[in-house]
Simulated assay, not measured.
Amino acid sequence: MIHPIYLALDFPTWQETKQFIETYGFKGVPVKVGMELFYREGPVVIEKLKQDNHPIFLDLKLHDIPTTVMKAMRNISTLGVDMVNVHALGGSEMIKWAKEGLLLGGSGIDTKLIAVTILTSMSDEKMNEELMINGTVKHVASHLANMANESGADGVVCSVHEARKIKQVCGNDFLTVTPGIRLEQSQKDDQERVATPAYAKKAGADILVIGRSVTKANDPVKAYKQAMEEWNNGLES
């Protein structure tokens, strides 16, 4: 089952993660586990979160040759997470083999394969000049989404601002997972393409990933409830 909001647990250790969850009563909420926490703690952190009934998006952004990604996905499939991702820039064969790896794992869990299009820290200028990819982020993200869709991915990570175009290209059943979510009073930090939960819903996002707007808030519980309220009712704060 896929949930509309995943809380990013961007903490360096399990101890800090556990303390945050228990202090603010977030036990059982859908969470995103990224590279920082997973590379420190390993698969055991997934097992601990699942013991407390947390739905999990495992955000590792795999990007390697197809056979390596396939073997990694075969192992990841045994963890029973909701979603896991690869970089779409790895190409169609890598995405196809990633999907094959998830199926070969045979865990019985329908883990969704999500492909990262263009990172939300990227602007048109950075993409053009530093990566030497011509065009706008919206155009390139839509192209990568279409390629991922045709290669067996279940959805993509994109910014809110590309979600509607991707839905037009790939269909309404193709998932759009949108990081860079900020509440009105929050800082952009290192993100370029950001949006509020209410705007995200109107723009066609299926799933939000929200982190620092909640985890760095003076009152994380209030901030989380605000995000849920905006999403559920489509109202700006």
Rank of each mutant, 00 (worst) to 15 (best):
G25F: 07
Q19G: 02
Q15R: 14
K48S: 10
G42R: 13
E22V: 08
E47T: 15
E22Q: 13
V31C: 11
T13P: 04
D52F: 07
G25E: 12
F38C: 05
T17F: 02
W14F: 04
V33R: 03
V44T: 15
H54S: 09
G28A: 06
E47S: 15
P30Y: 07
E47M: 13
W14T: 00
I46G: 07
Y39K: 10
Q51D: 12
L9P: 03
E47K: 15
T17A: 04
Q19V: 04
L49G: 06
D10H: 06
Q19M: 04
K48D: 06
L9W: 03
F20W: 03
E41S: 03
Q15A: 15
K48W: 14
N53Q: 15
K48P: 02
P43R: 08
K50N: 05
L37Q: 10
F26Q: 01
K32H: 11
H54A: 08
K50P: 05
L49S: 08
I21F: 00
K27P: 06
L9N: 02
L49E: 06
Q19E: 14
F20P: 01
L37E: 09
D52K: 11
Q51V: 13
F11Y: 04
Y24S: 03
R40T: 15
Y39R: 12
E36M: 07
V29K: 15
T23A: 06
T17Y: 04
V29P: 05
K18F: 13
F26V: 01
P30A: 14
L9I: 06
V33K: 02
V31K: 10
E16N: 10
P30F: 08
F38S: 08
G25H: 09
V29H: 14
K50R: 14
M35E: 03
F11V: 00
K48M: 12
D52Q: 13
G25D: 12
E16D: 12
T17C: 09
T23S: 09
E41N: 05
T13Y: 03
Q19S: 11
I21P: 00
K18V: 12
Q19R: 12
F26K: 01
T13S: 11
K27S: 15
E41P: 04
Q15W: 07
K27G: 13
P12V: 00
D10P: 02
D10Q: 06
K32E: 09
L9R: 02
I46M: 08
Q51F: 04
I21L: 13
I46S: 05
V44H: 10
T23Y: 03
G28V: 00
Y39Q: 14
H54L: 10
I46A: 05
I21C: 01
K32M: 08
F26W: 01
E22L: 13
P43D: 05
M35L: 15
W14Y: 07
K48L: 11
P12D: 01
D52W: 11
P30M: 10
E22A: 10
P43L: 05
F26T: 01
V45N: 06
E47P: 10
